[in-house]
Design a protein around this nucleic acid. Structure first.
Lengths: 115, 115
DNA sequence: CTTGTATTCAACTAAGTGGTTGAGTAGACT
DNA sequence: AGTCTACTCAACCACTTAGTTGAATACAAG
């Protein structure tokens, strides 16, 4: 029932939600790699890895080049910036255990003062 | 073809990959809310929101209470800590534009020095 | 005890995902 | 030209997901 294409932030999170894709990204921090290299650690076909690469590319996390027969993939972490910023808004809620409840109680108190 | 249940990090990212769920979490930073409150901004049924809440709960991002007929949801941002830490490993790659390529060239240079 | 309110459950649907296989394309090497 | 290597495409399959509708549950309040 999905109609509109996903927003970039959703695409980023969705791309990161698969362990294989996170593994591919980790590998790419070491530098560009072609599909064969990237597929090597996984028990799956080249085609499957190629599809994962496509998802990463659509999320903007990977760019592809051309070097003879090879299509090297290159990491582009830029989209993670927005993801990191989004999560960061919640930092105080995990650093300070009961921050959510605190916020609630504060709000409640304010409301009661208003009425 | 999925067999094993998702690891916690994948579950967290998957939960965050939906704009409705991110909206619900944002709302919950203001304090606990019941399903009716959470559903109000969205053009969808209570049941749909209830399902989103279930996903968030399975990801550990939300806990549920009981208050008469109401099942208030409470934010628990703890799982975001790991997600944030994971992304943080890539920070240098978006802060420093060509970090990935730099890393590659450095690696290449080292290899050439070795041989 | 009936009714209203808040929420979940079960069954269903349409579309998306992660994988496969087999055929097709692109460039390199004789 | 023909073949090898590296990859992508298309079709397919099983499973998941995001939504729906309608019935069921849980508690509150007459």
């Amino acid at each position: 029932m999905r109609t509109a294409p996903l927003d970039p932030l959703s695409r980023t999170f969705a791309a990161l939600a698969d362990p294989t894709r996170r593994g591919i990204l980790a590998r790419l921090t070491q530098g560009p790699a072609n599909v064969g290299d990237l597929a090597e650690p996984y028990d799956m076909t080249f085609a499957a890895v190629s599809k994962h690469l496509r998802v990463l590319q659509d999320a903007g996390l990977v760019t592809r080049g051309r070097d003879a027969q090879y299509r090297p993939a290159l990491l582009d972490a830029a989209p993670m910036k927005a993801a990191s910023a989004w999560i960061d808004d919640y930092r105080r809620f995990w650093e300070h255990s009961f921050a959510a409840l605190d916020a609630y109680l504060t709000t409640t108190q304010n409301k009661e003062q208003e009425s």
